[in-house]
Design a protein around this nucleic acid. Structure first.
Lengths: 243, 243
DNA sequence: TTTAAATGTCTATTGATATAGACAACTATA
DNA sequence: TATAGTTGTCTATATCAATAGACATTTAAA
């Protein structure tokens, strides 16, 4: 990890360094000691002043990734990255398996509305058809992993928000509404810088990256039952596609 | 697109605004006029000074996305985003279809080396087994889309670099070496800020986002034939997974 | 108990970022 | 051919980001 930070790019040096250290931690670069190298060493590696490194470490400390202890050093608190397999049987909660103890989905808000052009196309409904919209955030061990806007055909899944709020899971909410099984039909993946809404919902710092998925699930007959736009904190997750 | 830029975050306002405008262009927000709104209008929308908007537009102009014409306005030059379907039959060149006229793969460098732990695991070889490594960059209509490091079992595909350089495509190079068909077995997707090497290879500006895939292909018997780590310019591509 | 090594705090200075205002130069159109 | 609307350029000022140095405080080990 040599000094490859770049100046005058609109990205502050302390942020570039924070991103690099976060990635190094996630890759297990400091597993031997469980600590980040001393500030002076990092400053030399990146070719910057010690105070600039301190700004970066302060940001990581704010994220809960490291904890500085005067006299000892800067300890690594957290380094996991959740893996999400994307298959026909993709489910948010079940896919996590052993990676976290508790997976929960929280309902932030919901409403009934007319499908816009995009939602109608994905759900294969006529534009303007009534749909249920839900805003949710999903957490692994109380740490936010993704936030999502989800649409369901209103005539078929009218009670969805209430069922989801109780079950804290789409799969269980579907089951309660009489849909025993469903499959992932299509997933689109892009990436972007986090926006204001992401920062609040996912407890991110500005400049962070979000992975954005647009996903459509169908019942076993191939009829769309759900369309979701999810935004994942990129430094906490990865996706796996098995073909 | 209201004024949601954030201050004192380590990301300069002009960069946040450039990212937002790039995304709006890509989403077709200005298709009606083919132009970005006037600088004063954007400044008001984002709640910043006109000069800050000008810095953002200057960056987009540098990327070749817009072109300012004094007296008229700021014209949109380019708005495409390439789609890459990820299926068992994922191929870089063929998957593009009509989206670009010419897809080319260029060989930057290559060598033979011993498989490290990661490469050996993916290719299901004993650690230290000889592998061919290739560094490539792939372009659509002369615009860089991704750069990749690719490994092949050395005993089976010794002539790979030469074949690739001539064919400018993995698929055709495989065919030349006697492998008529292959399938995508596994794909992992993550995202990160672009590093120095990405900036050069992909002609990006610092702070840009890269989508990173780790992919393994097998022959029809399920024997691994290729492992690749590819880095895509996130604002130029999206992935689609059809299950 | 010293001492070395690490983080914490403070002051000062420089360069990049952002704001503010004024006016020039160019384009399209009434 | 005016005129309104737009981008281009200039000066000035304030705030944030980064550097530099000095010294305090805490921890662990000699």
């Amino acid at each position: 990890m040599a000094g490859q930070v770049q100046r005058q790019t609109g990205i502050a040096l302390w942020r570039q360094i924070a991103d690099r250290i976060r990635q190094a931690i996630s890759a297990g670069a400091y597993d031997g000691t469980g600590m980040v190298p001393p500030e002076m060493v990092l400053a030399q590696q990146f070719g910057v002043n010690r105070h600039t490194v301190r700004s970066a470490l302060a940001a990581l400390s704010q994220e809960g990734i490291v904890r500085a202890v005067q006299g000892r050093g800067t300890l690594i608190e957290r380094k996991e990255r959740l893996n999400f397999p994307i298959t026909r049987r993709t489910r948010f909660t079940a896919g996590i398996g052993e990676q976290a103890r508790a997976m929960r989905g929280l309902l932030l808000g919901h409403g009934e509305e007319k499908a816009d052009e995009e939602v109608a196309r994905w759900l294969k409904l006529p534009p303007g058809a009534p749909v249920i919209r839900m805003e949710t955030v999903r957490k692994a061990d109380d740490r936010p992993v993704s936030c999502a806007t989800t649409w369901f055909p209103a005539d078929r899944f009218a009670g969805m928000p209430e069922a989801y709020e109780k079950a804290e899971s789409i799969t269980r909410a579907f089951a309660e509404l009489g849909l025993a099984d469903y499959v992932r039909a299509t997933t689109e993946i892009t990436a972007a810088h986090a926006e204001a809404g992401d920062l609040a919902a996912l407890e991110l710092t500005p400049g962070a990256i979000v992975l954005i998925t647009k996903a459509m699930n169908t019942d076993l007959e191939g009829v769309p039952v759900q369309y979701a736009i999810s935004r994942f904190a990129a430094d906490r997750v990865q996706f796996t596609i098995e073909n």
